[in-house]
Amino acid sequence: MLRLRRVEILTESTPLWEVFIRPRNGLAHKHVGSLHAADAEMALIGARNAYTRRGEGNSIWVVASIDISSSDPDKSSEDFDSALTKAYRHPTFYNVPDGVENL
């Protein structure tokens, strides 16, 4: 029987996981993508197969997407724009006279 009934397709969906890979020791794990898997163990196996087929890394983290908290994109300017006006947080804000070194 090839014809699928709707109900067969809409089975319980598997959770979504975010995949992070550390390219090599000394670097941080970096987000590379996501995948569906029933649990963390299967997510790790899937991530290994999907995201490290060409030596992309030596360590994988998977995090259930639902567990990630994100800043509110609608408040992006109120959260982050004020930092743009605070030049005094950067070393280039300060004057160093010629002749002064190691500063």
Binding site: T11, E12, T14, A37, A38, D39, M42
Partner: peptide, 8 residues
């Protein structure tokens, strides 16, 4: 898929 979800 069903077995994986049941196991989980």
């Amino acid at each position: 898929r069903d077995a994986a979800m049941a196991h989980s």
